[in-house]
Nucleic acid binder design. Structure first.
Length: 415
RNA sequence: GUGAGUGUAGCCCAGUGGUCUAAGGCGCCAGGUUGUGGCCCUGGAUAUCGAGGGUUCAAAUCCCUCCACUCACCCCA
C-alpha cells in the first residue's frame, strides 16, 4: 500500500478548520497592515537558493529537493519563501512601485530533513516581506505586525527575541573577535562546536550544550560591536518597540540560519518551548536583492510555520470556529420519493440552502442516523404519502419536533 | 547523517512461547415489529499480529535482517 512520503502528511477534513482559521488570520492581519498576496512557483532555478540562502548553510548543503528536469535545468523545490519573492520583485520591476513594496505569501516549503515533532519535509509557511526601505520604523512595523498576528491567533505565553547581527561593514570585524575569543577556548567546546568554529562562527552562539552556552554567554556580543549606523538603527528600533509596548527580549545569542540576514533579527517562540518550537523568525536582508542582481535595496520580513502554529493552538486549547456545512438532511422512502428528493435537493441548493441528500435506499432509521451524525439542524423526510399531498415532513433534529409542510413553503422555512 | 523507542482492525489498545481459529473500547453496518436520529440493548463486518528469514513439537510472543513510524541530536518554521 502506498503511503504519503516521509515527512509529508495529508490534511484531512477533521484538521481543516485549523487551517482555514490560520489562513483567515493571515489575510486579516495583512489587510490591516497593507500587505498584498503573492504566489510564486513551487520550484525555482537551484541557483536562486544557493546564492541567496548561502552555500554554507544546511539548507543548501543537504536539505534541498533538487532535480534536473527533462530540459536539463537544475531546479529546486522552494526551501524557503523570501528568495522567490525577491526574484519576483526584480523580475517584474516592482522597484517601480512606491517603496516599500509589501507582500505576503502562504506556501508549502520543502526541506529534506529527518522529520520529528514540529518538523516536516513539506511544511507550510506564512511570510511577509517589506522591500525597499531601510528605516528602523519599518523594522518596528514588521515586528509589531508579527507580534499582533500571533496574538490574533489566540496564542499566549509567547516571547519575542531580538538581536542585531550588523552589516557588511561591521560583521566581519565582529566575527574576527568572536573567532579569537573561541580560539582561546577551543578545548572546552563540544564536537559540533569545533566544527562550527571552522565553518560558521555565529552558530557557536546558539549551541544548547550547557558548557557551550556558558562560553557563549561570555563571548563578545554582536550588539556591542556594531558600526555607528547599525548601532543607531538598533537603538532606534528598540525605542520604537518600547513605544509600541512590544515586550521584546534582546538575546545576544540569537542568530538566524540563513546567510542573507543583516542587522535586525528576531524570533517568536512559546515560552514553554521544547525543541523545534520557534513559531516564526525574521529579520533584515539588506543585501539580498543586490546579491540577486538588483540595485541595493534594503528589506525586512518574517516567515512563520503553520504546522507549528496549529500545534500550539491545540496545546493551548484555542477553539477555532467550525467550518460551515449543510444544515439540512433530505431523507426519502421509496423509488418515487427518491426521484422527487433529488429534484428538491437540487432546487434548495440552487437557492443557496445547503443540503445533504441521502443516497441509496437505506432504511429511514439509517438515514436519520446519518442526519444525526452529520449534525444538521433539520431533516426533511419525503414519503410516498407526503408526495401525493405535495408535502414533506420537516423535522427539527434538536428538539425532535416535526410537522408536515407544503413542499412549496420549504425554501422559506429553511432559509 | 547520528542516537533511542515503537510497530496487533479506520482509530485507541490488551495480549511476553501452547487455552490466540487474537480480547476490549471508539467508529462503521444491521436489528430491538409496520416510515423516524441522538441514550440503552443485541448482533455483524473489518487484523496475511510491519516484512522476510531463523530457533522450537509449537511464535503476535524468542533471535537476526530489512522497512516504517515516533522522539531527540544536527538544523530550522
Amino acid at each position: 500500500m502506498y503511503r504519503a512520503p516521509r515527512g509529508t502528511s495529508d490534511i484531512l477534513p477533521g484538521e481543516q478548520a485549523y487551517w482555514r482559521y490560520v489562513e483567515q488570520k493571515v489575510v486579516d492581519i495583512c489587510q490591516l497592515y497593507g500587505y498584498e498576496r503573492i504566489d510564486s512557483p513551487v520550484f525555482e532555478d537551484t541557483g536562486l537558493f544557493t546564492r541567496s540562502v548561502g552555500p554554507g548553510t544546511d539548507i543548501v548543503e543537504k536539505e534541498m529537493y533538487t532535480f534536473t528536469d527533462k530540459g536539463g535545468n537544475q531546479v529546486t523545490l522552494r526551501p524557503e519563501g523570501t528568495a522567490p519573492v525577491c526574484r519576483a520583485y526584480l523580475e517584474h520591476g516592482l522597484h517601480n512601485l512606491p517603496q516599500p513594496v509589501k507582500l505576503y505569501y502562504l506556501a508549502a516549503v520543502f526541506r529534506y530533513e529527518r522529520p520529528q515533532a514540529g518538523r516536516y519535509r513539506q511544511h507550510h509557511q506564512f511570510g511577509f516581506e517589506a522591500i525597499g526601505d531601510a528605516s528602523p520604523a519599518l523594522d518596528a512595523e514588521v515586528i509589531d505586525m508579527s507580534w499582533q498576528f500571533f496574538l490574533s491567533l489566540g496564542l499566549r505565553h509567547l516571547s519575542l527575541l531580538l538581536n542585531s547581527i550588523g552589516c557588511r561593514q561591521c560583521r566581519p570585524g565582529y566575527l574576527r573577535r568572536l573567532e579569537e575569543y573561541y580560539a582561546g577556548h577551543a578545548e572546552a567546546l563540544c564536537p559540533d562546536c569545533k566544527v562550527r568554529l571552522e565553518r560558521n562562527t555565529l552558530r557557536l552562539l546558539d549551541c544548547k550544550k550547557p558548557a557551550c552556552q556558558k562560553l557563549a554567554g561570555l563571548a563578545p556580543r554582536s550588539a556591542d560591536n556594531l558600526c555607528p549606523d547599525c548601532a543607531a538603527h538598533f537603538d532606534q528600533l528598540k525605542r520604537y518597540l518600547d513605544r509600541l509596548e512590544i515586550p521584546y527580549t534582546v538575546n545576544h545569542r540569537l542568530v538566524r540560519g540563513l546567510d542573507y540576514y543583516t542587522r535586525t533579527v528576531f524570533e517568536i517562540q512559546p515560552m514553554s518551548g521544547g525543541s523545534q518550537s520557534t513559531l516564526g523568525g525574521g529579520g533584515r536582508y539588506d543585501d539580498l536583492i543586490e546579491e540577486l542582481g538588483g540595485k541595493p535595496t534594503p528589506a525586512i520580513g518574517l516567515a512563520a510555520g503553520i504546522e507549528r502554529m496549529i500545534l500550539n493552538l491545540k496545546q493551548q486549547g484555542v477553539a477555532v470556529p467550525p467550518l460551515a456545512k449543510p444544515g439540512v438532511f433530505l431523507a426519502h422512502i421509496g423509488e418515487e420519493a427518491r426521484d422527487e428528493a433529488m429534484k428538491l435537493a437540487s432546487g434548495l441548493r440552487r437557492s443557496g440552502t445547503g443540503v445533504i441528500l441521502a443516497t441509496g435506499n437505506r432504511s429511514l432509521k439509517a438515514q436519520l442516523r446519518q442526519a444525526n451524525s452529520a449534525g444538521v439542524r433539520y431533516a426533511v423526510i419525503m414519503g410516498e404519502e407526503e408526495i401525493r399531498a405535495g408535502k414533506v415532513i420537516l423535522r427539527d433534529m434538536v428538539n425532535a419536533e416535526q410537522q408536515s409542510v407544503p413542499m412549496s413553503e420549504l425554501p422559506a422555512l429553511l432559509g
